[in-house]
Nucleic acid binder design. Structure first.
Lengths: 213, 213
DNA sequence: AAGCGTTTCAAACTTACGTTTTAATTTGAT
DNA sequence: ATCAAATTAAAACGTAAGTTTGAAACGCTT
């Protein structure tokens, strides 16, 4: 019952996703990728055109479905409830991320880590192609949070959303900013369910906290 | 009244700090650095030994004083107050970061961005050298937060600190995870004072929120 | 079985990288 | 002023990077 070997392009995408997360885009060479994928060096340029285009392909394979899932959850929630709670809103984002993180067939947490890393790096390949395509994502969530938290001014809301998504991305990416200083033994640091148990209350508390006089 | 030209090593450090933030360590070549610093290519290896050692030098120049400042604030606070508030505790970390971000002579927000970026990248040069040196930082804050929030279990506290430092690092680093999707016009996104105004309440609310039954 | 588009392969190409070398120059103490 | 040490400079070294090439192998229709 050996798993059938995926085709060349898929093998390249899978290995690239992992190596880009581990070493970063620049530090990952096509020779590392093609060796681990057990394909010929020229296969990358044949199937994807260039290393830059490969990165975009790796990225879009996961990002498009992930964003679609979030928006679908948002649609469903807005159809079901009149007044949205902040927690349910946060969950529409968390749940697809969690599902992705727990699905080895889709690379598990690899992509969320890649996403987080790429956002922090402010990657040139992201600025150009992805920002315009997925502005609808931010717009939808901005409107939804505005309805859930009408007492917040637009500036304060924007900041709180910024903070909320920052910490959520980092949590799923497993970027333990404290562990790097110590040998801290949060053994469950990469267990997605544990993340959510503590993450949602933290984020919701920050979002709904009363405005300072 | 032209500023006197700093010596070669300092010019290299200053330029490297900026380029490492902009393009990352791997994508920044010594030729880019030495050209912009207007020094000879061999100067990096002469003064620092290698590109790896240069990165460490760039990093330690800022990190050691920053951590020292945080711990000094912590000492002062613990000497002054019996029972520490979470907000005052958060401020002992925020204030040195803010001071650094507002001081052009120390590179302004550049280093905090580099720190954030390097943490997310889980950089090899960080794991080896810095983690053991600065474990005292995490230990001190862990103890302090434990005293300020005695009702939290060690696991829950570790998670909340993880989330709190994540969002603080990202905020100072100016990693606007939402702006990359849109052309969002939070014009003040890089204004350190604005960050603190909204950041502290958000973080404190997450930290002190009551434990779920 | 022949033919044809698609894919794979080994090899080479060009370029840029970090580093080293050797000599020239500057600096600072005597 | 002199000499030794520290610094700068120009050039080259060896390696590895992304990409291209042209032929071989494969898969499919006829």
């Amino acid at each position: 019952m050996e798993a059938s070997r995926p085709d060349t392009a898929t093998r390249i995408l899978d290995v690239s996703e992992r190596l880009f997360v581990e070493h970063g885009f620049e530090a990952t060479s096509l020779r590392m990728i093609t060796q681990q994928a057990e394909v010929n060096l020229a296969a990358v340029n044949y199937h994807f055109g260039s290393k830059d285009a490969l990165f975009e392909a790796v990225f879009m394979r996961r990002l498009a479905p992930l964003i679609a899932s979030c928006l679908a959850e948002l649609d469903e929630l807005e159809a079901r409830e009149e007044k949205l709670s902040v927690e349910s809103l946060v969950t529409t984002f968390i749940r697809p991320c969690l599902a992705l993180s727990k699905d080895p067939a889709r690379g598990g947490a690899l992509f969320v880590r890649l996403l987080s890393r790429t956002l922090v790096e402010n990657h040139r390949l992201l600025r150009e192609t992805i920002s315009q395509q997925y502005s609808v994502f931010v717009q939808r969530y901005s409107r939804a949070f505005h309805h859930a938290l009408p007492e917040l001014g637009v500036e304060e809301l924007a900041w709180r959303m910024h903070f909320a998504f920052s910490v959520m991305f980092n949590a799923f990416a497993g970027n333990d900013v404290l562990k790097i200083f110590t040998r801290s033994q949060i053994v469950s640091a990469r267990d997605p369910d544990m993340i959510v148990k503590y993450l949602v209350p933290f984020v919701v508390a920050g979002l709904v906290s009363p405005v300072k006089g």
